[in-house]
């Protein structure tokens, strides 16, 4: 990555040569990382789209893709609860994304624009929550939902997921609104627009990239979640795709081929985000890193 030739030597090698060595090192590093990142992804895809007889033929695992099939996916949809799991995942992901984003935008705006005592405390509370361990939160939530008879409900899982994603969302929007100059709002007020109207017509459009970053983040947390769904949902028909698929390998009729097919399905939304929305996401990183 870096010219490892070291300080003293550097003085005697021309800057041109240094640059060439550096360039080679850079390309090599990039190549190694690309391989490290892509091999597992390739293996997943190869197994998902091959018949299992091809994959395991002859006692060695073949990943060469010499026959292509969608049978593994068909079996997932006909013989397992996958359609239901996907539906559950989409439902709780959508509802918790909406809730977390709305909450973050509202709280972020309020915390930025209104001065109050204890602002430092609020900031610390948000940050503290955002470093917290989901499993530690999951235990009391489990007991509380159980006492309320709310285990195995979309509501409980939505709340739990929002609990994990909202602190970061609030933090992000809080910082984002600071980049929106107050003068923008003031000029709207002068032109006679009300506060709420200004927020709606002026502030929110400007803050849209931040809002989208928050939504992407909330989406990922919910879509990827295993811990909360595992704890809150105890019935097969309420499982999300992550919990449902984690149990596939225990069954005789389902093997690695179908499991990897499920993995491909779970990878589609992250893939779409990485491809089309990564700039919003990077904005999120720039503001405060994300979990």
């Amino acid at each position: 990555m870096i010219d490892l030739g070291g300080g003293a030597a550097g003085k005697y090698v021309s800057q041109h040569t240094q640059e060439r060595i550096r360039r080679t090192a850079v390309v090599l590093t990039a190549l190694l990382v690309a391989i490290f990142v892509s091999i597992p992804v390739y293996v997943m895809i190869a197994i998902a789209f091959q018949p299992s007889t091809t994959t395991f033929r002859g006692g060695t695992v073949s990943l060469l893709f010499d026959s292509f099939t969608l049978d593994n996916f068909v079996l997932l949809f006909t013989d397992t609860g996958t359609p239901r799991y996907l539906f559950n995942s989409l439902l709780v992901t959508a509802s918790s994304t909406l809730l977390a984003t709305a909450l973050s935008v509202a709280a972020g705006y309020g915390l930025t624009r209104f001065e109050f005592r204890g602002k430092t405390m609020a900031a610390r509370a948000v940050l503290f929550a955002y470093m917290f361990s989901p499993i530690v939160l999951a235990i009391p939530l489990y007991v509380i939902f159980f006492t309320l008879g709310l285990l195995d409900s979309y509501f409980a899982l939505t709340m739990a997921l929002t609990g994990i994603s909202a602190p970061f969302g609030i933090w992000l929007m809080w910082q984002y609104f600071q980049t929106v100059p107050e003068a923008l709002e003031e000029s709207a007020w002068i032109r006679g627009a009300g506060r709420v109207r200004t927020l709606w017509d002026v502030v929110l459009p400007v803050a849209r990239p931040g809002t989208i970053a928050t939504a992407i983040f909330a989406f990922s947390v919910a879509w990827n979640d295993f811990t909360m769904a595992r704890v809150v949902m105890s019935q097969d028909e309420m499982y999300t795709i992550t919990v449902g698929a984690s149990l596939f390998l225990d069954r005789a009729s389902i093997g690695w081929s179908e499991t990897m097919a499920a993995a491909v399905l779970m990878s589609l939304p992250p893939f779409a985000i990485a491809l089309f929305l990564q700039n919003y996401l990077l904005q999120g990183f720039n503001v405060g890193g994300l979990e």
Partner: peptide, 18 residues
């Protein structure tokens, strides 16, 4: 799924009061 999960499943259903 077969095997280990039934017990855990059942205890969670019981805990859910269901």
């Amino acid at each position: 799924s077969r095997g280990t999960s039934t017990d855990e499943e059942l205890s969670q259903m019981l805990a859910a009061g269901d």
